[in-house]
Design a protein around this nucleic acid. Sequence first.
DNA 1: CGTACAATTGAACGAAGTCAATTGGTGTGG
DNA 2: CCACACCAATTGACTTCGTTCAATTGTACG
Lengths: 233, 233
Amino acid sequence: MANEQTSYSAVTCVNCNLDKLCIPKGLDPSDVGELALRVNRNNIRQKGEVIYHAGSTFRGIVALRSGSAKLLSYDGDGNELIVDFILPGELLGFDGFAKQTHNCTAIALETVNFCHLPAYRLDMLVGNTSNLSHILLQRSCDQFDFQVQKALFNRRTAEERVAYFIVALSDRLKLRGYSEMEFRFSMSREEIGNYLGITQETVSRIFHHFQAMNMIEIKAKRLKIIDKKKLSS
Amino acid sequence: MANEQTSYSAVTCVNCNLDKLCIPKGLDPSDVGELALRVNRNNIRQKGEVIYHAGSTFRGIVALRSGSAKLLSYDGDGNELIVDFILPGELLGFDGFAKQTHNCTAIALETVNFCHLPAYRLDMLVGNTSNLSHILLQRSCDQFDFQVQKALFNRRTAEERVAYFIVALSDRLKLRGYSEMEFRFSMSREEIGNYLGITQETVSRIFHHFQAMNMIEIKAKRLKIIDKKKLSS
DNA sequence: CGTACAATTGAACGAAGTCAATTGGTGTGG
DNA sequence: CCACACCAATTGACTTCGTTCAATTGTACG
């Protein structure tokens, strides 16, 4: 956001001025030394340049040293949604950890300097792919991914949200061995509306509308999906 | 969502039918046995009962075995926002990891049965508070918390969003040693609008309005905050 | 200094919200 | 087992906030 021209030549995590914000915050001092040895420093990008791309393989965690960046995601129609603005000392890359593929793109908003902890070295520190630390970090990142997804469809119309909600719930139930075409809501209209960011009245009207269009049959909390394909669009 | 009455008596993570979804998914088989020894099983809550409360100390990760739940957060005015609906095999509790205090509440939507991995046992498996695994998990959960925060203020009016954006940015810059009262935006109006879920025109109008109210002075990308207190309300 | 893009400003429209009345479902006690 | 009460869901009428479209002004950079 502002200009700060420092000589980074001799800087490591051990004497970095961002140690109260970045990964070292709260980290055991001995581990900071360990970390410093594994981080690539002084990566530069100019304004508008990409730090990493959605769809690319996860290559590790990025820590911004100076400048600012935007983290964005794309919806189905290619519209971009800015998930976060990144300032010095903040971390980037968690969007690629769970699936090992980034689902966000990071772009510099001005000249940036960043450090990079490569994935394979991250594994050396955190442990291999199948141990618990790794799995929990993965699950946590999953939840983050999901929140990004949710933010994306919060841009859509009320109808699209409700349709998406039904389809997503159906898919999740199927995965758990329940019927994907017929099930019972355990939540009220108000709770659905709250979750989707619309009112219960709107939920009700849209259910009615979908029924009129022969996509679903709904009676109180029982739902029967007639045309899941139509619903998905 | 549906009824499934199984005898859970002899069930451990090793032979649980949710092993393709829950923590064990992707976990090394030897670690699953390890995990099984540390998990408390057969915790029951009835419809409407709380699994954990916002504000309470983090006590570990919860894995839903049957039933469904809602995960919700409260805004400043006590309005609830449903962050997620939880189905069997899904995990709960990451909202408490970063700050060691839950910022969400989990409530059963119907009778639920869940497993519980206590925090101190989690530490035994993941390592102590200051090692890298722990820190990274914490940072990742931080990002999750932030997305929840963002979802919360997406319910607010365009004016509140813009005000919040300015204040939050000011605070973040201050934390990094920059001036909190006067700075330069590195992002365009369009990017601000995209981030806040409103159009650039609306951003522009609201900036103008805040200036007319003597809360800020804005000229192109330079912003000067006149009355931060007023802006925060 | 001019060009291209960014930001502002205005006017009209529309999707979803609000408020209010009605209907429907469920569980409980007579 | 029915009837009542209570809460959930539906439906309608009206309002509003923010969008959209379009025209204009401002700003940065070659």
